[in-house]
Amino acid sequence: METVLSINGLTKTFGRLTAVNNLHLEVKRGQVFGMLGPNGSGKTTTLGMLMGVVNSTSGSFSWFGQPPTSHVRKKIGAVLEHPIFYPYLSGQKNLELMAMIKEAPVANIPKVLELVELKGREHDKYKTYSLGMKQRLAIASALLNDPIVLILDEPTNGLDPMGIAEIREIIKKIAADGKTIILASHLLDEVQKVCTHFAVLKRGNLMHYGPVDDVGKGEEMVEVAAYHDDLGVLLQEFIGSATVKKENNEFLVMMKEGYHSQDLNRFLFDKGIVASHLITKKKTLEKQFLEILAEGQVMNSIKK
């Protein structure tokens, strides 16, 4: 697969503080790449270096195999931290200005406004917009030049649940178009829902890098409920169960390796019990993330 972004030993120090330490990363075309990390872990500084606003202390990176220039940046759509626009200009005028800078066709403006559902408000001044509208305008601006790569830094920061759901839908829509997306967030649920790959940063160090699908691998956990008084005892008898815990009216069964929820289902059925509730619970990214941070193992190079 074609490499979109390649980072080699990128480092940034602010005085005595090392914000990003010898970072190596690669992002391939079509990936939705999540950058995770607690606040102050160097996500925004890294993205700032990639977008030319922060000068790197050492190391290098390349976009599409080319050295980073302002010309290359025109092909990338990026929103770092919070949306930035001229408050006294309307949404439309702000986008026109960006189109001039990005050398994008003005005809794209109605299209992107349509996509983020801002049609009808585009002639109002930016400062009159709600936070959700500002975020959506930022995504619209990032899409203006039909970019190959989209960089979103905390795109759902400060939004209400509806706003978050809207932005998530937009991101999914964009990802379905085959665009490469780099998404920095500390909302892990968010990343698990939309990302294909993820990296974890902690105090400027790379802690983990890999596909999101790998997160759920390993032992399964099954949540079961049935109208049967001795369900708990029966579940203990099942050879696949490692542990059984009762939570409210459901039982939480930790499966042994090699056993899956369908084995448990068959077991119950053979006993003449029909489950009223049966859910396979994969390990969440959140859990894995906390484990990675707790382990504190620094990854200095990535497997290619």
């Binding site: 977008m51 030319g52 606003v53 220039t69 302002s70 010309h71 940046r73 025109k74 990338i76 990026a78 770092l80 930035i84 626009f85 001229y86 408050p87 960006m98 800078i101 990005k102 050398e103 601006s141």
Partner: peptide, 16 residues
């Protein structure tokens, strides 16, 4: 307004 930052992110060089 930090728009200088966004201008550069959008593809202006600092010289420009």
């Amino acid at each position: 307004y930090r728009t200088i930052r966004q201008n550069i992110i959008d593809g202006m060089s600092r010289e420009e």
